[in-house]
């Protein structure tokens, strides 16, 4: 079992390294497509974490939804719009620099404090018994979703419906109106007018 534990830890470290590395890369990269690929790496490593945590269903859904759907859309949009690399621009809001320093200081202080507090906390967290857990299985999640969480589930479905309608409205092609006018001579003037999303 020690070997298995060690193996698990090793995998964890590898995944964590992948996640953090990809995350940093995502922020650092100025090419959006690289950033997107880095983010996919993060998602996949997160899926690995979920597997380690005994949540295969969530892991699968993570890949399907994030990697398979959302990021595909993002990549698609990046390719469609042929997004350029970010150009460095002079910083326009100078006050952000001290704000950032201040925020970072606070963040570090809080992190240190929280780590200290957790270390001092008498609460002991049980180890995950991922191998024998029934929690992450499809059946338990399905039962939970359709009993206790039925209302949130349905609300989510309505939210998605709204998102579909909204996305279609936002992205649909501009409607072209043909305005036909007749002057005194009976001559017709046709004017094409584009009805854009922002004109609606």
């Amino acid at each position: 079992m020690i070997i298995a534990d060690l193996f698990q830890t090793l995998i964890w470290i590898v995944l964590a390294g992948l996640a953090i590395g990809s995350g940093v890369a995502m922020v650092v990269q100025r090419n959006p497509l690289y950033a997107a690929i880095s983010l996919i790496g993060v998602f996949i490593s997160f899926a690995g974490f979920y597997l380690l945590l005994g949540a295969p269903f969530i892991a699968a859904v993570q890949v399907i939804v994030y990697a398979g759907a959302i990021m595909v859309l993002v990549v698609f949009v990046i390719m469609l719009l042929n997004v350029e690399e970010e150009v460095r621009k002079p910083l326009r809001l100078k006050f952000l620099i001290p704000a950032a320093i201040f925020g970072a200081a606070i963040l570090f202080a809080q992190a240190a404090f929280i780590i200290y507090s957790v270390g001092a906390s008498p609460v002991r967290v049980p180890n995950a018994d991922a191998a024998n857990s029934q929690i992450g299985l499809t059946k338990s999640i399905g039962t939970g979703l359709f009993t206790d969480y039925l209302l949130p589930f349905e609300i989510t479905s309505i939210l998605i419906l709204m998102a579909i309608v909204g996305a279609i409205t936002l992205a649909r092609r501009p409607t072209v109106l043909l305005l036909v006018e007749e002057d005194y001579d009976g001559k017709k003037h046709v004017e094409r007018r584009t009805l854009k999303i922002d004109n609606i």
Binding site: A47, F57, A60, V61, V63, I64, G68, V72, T138
Partner: peptide
Amino acid sequence: LYVLAVTSVGVY
């Protein structure tokens, strides 16, 4: 789900 997940990555 695993099958679907992995094949969906194939799009990339």
